[in-house]
Nucleic acid binder design. Structure first.
Lengths: 149, 149
DNA sequence: CGAATTCCTAGTTAAGCAGTTGGGATTGAG
DNA sequence: CTCAATCCCAACTGCTTAACTAGGAATTCG
């Protein structure tokens, strides 16, 4: 049940883009350095995200990447699904194919996998990049809210 | 985020043992046939479960395996943890080591993995083998409850 | 132009999965 | 007592995938 580096690195990269949302394109070199990910590997991950429409690229000098939607519109689930493929713990859970349930334990165990899948989905679909940005800079909020100080 | 066959087969095997709990030892050959798992492969899985203390074996002719606890005392989480290793989506989540959080996105993404892990844990620790057995034979309950029939 | 950037394809290395094979040890039944 | 059923153990194999690395082509700003 491990997540691969694709998902881990990919989320970090997207988080980095969210942090710099609205400030012009961010180059891979910068993401690579800040998030400590090999640049050539990161290239492949971001290519997947681009093909899925989550980011878009600006080529040439001074180019880079930007989120295709605002951070509040992109969930962790969106990102992980693109990079990790289906998040279902077993393949049969994804597409309601109850055919293979011939043998005795099949359907009962399938129900377990289904519950695991649902709980994962609930979590990742409920967290947006904006949520992560907010978590990252709580000080800003503290300052703003400190009117009595 | 895929579960390997170890976890899948292992849970099916344990479910099979739960179904026959209290009726004497169950041989690998029977589990293998009923759950449609290669017997020699199943041997390895059940060896792991035995070493973890979830089942015990009776050697020799007419031997087999039995659950070491009643089905209501064994959770899906117990089984998966033994067979799949840590269920944490990333390694750092398991043991509160917040050391590596030097780079900017590290701690924020870690919080996400932590939430995923917690939700998986909640699910698998809440389902016992007894629950699965109950799900498998709802007809029995229906019959018993049908007093008017 | 040329430096900075994205884009694309094709390796490479290592590890793990999903078994199989071949034997050895134990024990109940006949 | 013997033998067939069963568990026990370790090694081996084929395959797939993860996690990169390498090298170059195309694009664009200054």
């Amino acid at each position: 049940m491990k997540l691969s580096t694709k998902g881990r690195y990919g989320l970090k990269a997207m988080f980095d883009l969210a942090l710099h949302f609205g400030s012009g394109p961010v180059s891979l070199a910068h993401i690579s350095e800040r998030q400590d990910i090999s640049m050539s590997y990161l290239e492949q991950l971001i290519a997947t995200l681009r093909k899925a429409g989550l980011v878009y690229s600006i080529r040439g000098s001074q180019g880079g990447y930007e989120l295709n939607f605002s951070p509040s519109e992109i969930t962790v689930g969106d990102i992980l699904e693109v990079l990790e493929g289906q998040l279902a713990p077993v393949s049969c859970v994804k597409s309601n194919d109850t055919e293979h349930c011939s043998k005795s334990g099949e359907c009962v165990t399938r129900a377990v996998w289904q519950q695991i899948h649902d709980s994962i989905t609930d979590v990742v679909d409920s967290i947006t990049l904006q949520d992560m940005v907010n978590d990252y800079m709580p000080k800003t909020n503290v300052m703003i809210n400190r009117k009595e100080y």
